[in-house]
Amino acid sequence: MILIIGGAYHNKLSYALKTYNILKEDMQDGKTCPLDEAFSKKGIYNLHLYIKRSLEQGFINKENALSLVDNIGNKEIIICDEIGSGIIPLDKFERSYRDITGQIVSYISEKADQVIRIYYGIPSVLKE
């Protein structure tokens, strides 16, 4: 499993598609996919938005958040925005969204064979 992280709009997806020679259709979009179909394709991008929607719609809660990635199996590619470096949000939901995304991505990072951070489209390998 390859985890790709980086700031918003840093060309993470286009890097992955080009580097691993896959089609966008083979990747699930966390922004729009049905909540129970996140891991039905080769990989997923916008994982942070999938986590956000899952929390908003009660698909997961603070206590069972890691269950979201129970059946992540050995997905090839997981792409997620780094969202933890701003001001602590005043809104309680935004705070827990940030916390839970951090927990889930750290969990995936531990499981992943490779972790790559993208900076304006340029990769740095954090783990391999």
């Binding site: 980086g6 700031g7 918003a8 709009y9 840093h10 060309n11 942070h48 956000k52 925005d81 780094e82 969202i83 933890g84 470096s85 701003g86 001001i87 949000p89 935004e94 969204y97 940030r98 995304t101 900076y119 304006y120 489209g121 340029i122």
Partner: peptide, 27 residues
């Protein structure tokens, strides 16, 4: 790029435009 907060449509579009432009230049 490292804040998950959604401000307004205009600001989200600003972040997107600036970062993609930086990607364009980086390449």
């Amino acid at each position: 790029s490292y804040e998950g907060l959604y401000y307004t449509k205009e600001i989200e579009n600003y972040i997107k435009t600036l970062n993609y432009a930086s990607c364009f230049i980086a390449e």
